[in-house]
């Protein structure tokens, strides 16, 4: 007896994707890290998308990949990054006999659903040609028979977007301080700690350079440490006070009527000395 086996492309697609989907689903339940769970869920969703394509639903194939795998899973991954990637779940039991009870419930639900769903498979399959006006047909249904549901969906999405913004926004515990409050706080610090209430000196003041690595000089000729960022002070060799003061003195001398030409030659000599 010769068994005539006719395997169609749809069947091959089904068997490959079904195995992948079930493996992915088992991975989702058993992996300890939530990132691995999310990736196995992606495997399930992509295999389902391929099955949709083979069932004559090219539009759902695209939507499944764009919306589910693209948007929803990426959202999951964002939240996993937010709450910590490396966190591992303990899969041990908290309640005794929990696993066994869940297993029994699973088998029961599986049997029940298989029998219930197989009751619904009646008549001969007709099939849908995915190439023939799938999107036009869906659009026709969406805007005629299902137009109310479509409008409700719009309201749902708007509500969800607003709710996400409201929920994700952190509560402002204190009122944001205005100019008056900040000025009062500065004076308070001056009275209590003696902190200078005025603006801090800029870097490069009274110096020959306006580089941020050049500290400002105070009127008494010392360096104002608050004028240079702490990071720069620890990494870059800042010019010494003498060097800065020399430049300062040159400028003062020029202002008092000295010859600018000589200063420039002085500068040139400094450079050659260096």
């Amino acid at each position: 007896m010769i068994l005539e086996i006719a395997i169609t492309g749809v069947e091959i697609t089904f068997w490959v994707c079904a195995v992948l989907a079930i493996l992915g689903a088992i991975g989702l339940v058993t992996f300890k890290k939530s990132v691995h769970c999310a990736l196995s869920l992606a495997l399930v969703m992509i295999s389902l998308a391929v099955i949709y394509a083979s069932l004559g639903a090219p539009y759902l194939f695209a939507v499944q990949i764009i919306v589910y795998t693209g948007a929803i899973l990426m959202l999951f991954l964002f939240v996993i990054m937010l709450v910590g990637v490396s966190a591992q779940d303990s899969l041990g039991e908290v309640v005794k006999g929990h696993r066994l009870a869940v297993g029994l419930a699973g088998v029961g639900v599986l049997a029940l659903l298989v029998f219930a769903v197989l009751q619904g498979v009646t008549g001969t399959p007709i099939g849908i040609d995915g190439n023939a006006n799938n999107i036009q047909g869906l659009a026709g249904l969406l805007f005629s028979r299902y137009v109310i549901a479509f409008e409700a969906t719009a309201a749902l999405l708007i509500t969800a977007a607003v709710a996400a913004m409201v929920l994700a926004h952190p509560e402002q515990l204190k009122k944001k301080p205005g100019q008056t409050e900040r000025a009062a706080a500065r004076l308070e610090a001056f009275i209590r700690l003696g902190t200078h209430p005025g603006p801090k000196p800029n870097s490069g003041v009274f110096a020959r350079h306006n580089s941020i690595a050049t500290p400002a000089l105070l009127p008494d000729g010392t360096v104002a440490p608050s004028s240079v960022s702490e990071v720069l002070a620890s990494r870059v060799a800042l010019p010494s006070v003498d060097e800065l003061m020399a430049a300062h003195d040159d400028v003062l001398w020029a202002l008092e009527g000295g010859d600018t030409y000589e200063i420039e030659t002085d500068l040139g000599q400094e450079k050659t000395n260096d």
């Binding site: 929990h98 696993r99 419930a105 298989v114 498979v121």
Partner: peptide
């Protein structure tokens, strides 16, 4: 297809009852 859908649904249900991480 129906049996595949039911199997996936059951695995999801079991995971829902077994796992404790809200994300999973």
């Amino acid at each position: 297809y129906a049996v595949l859908a039911v199997i996936l649904f059951t695995i999801g249900l079991v995971g829902f009852m077994v796992r404790r991480n809200a994300l999973v």
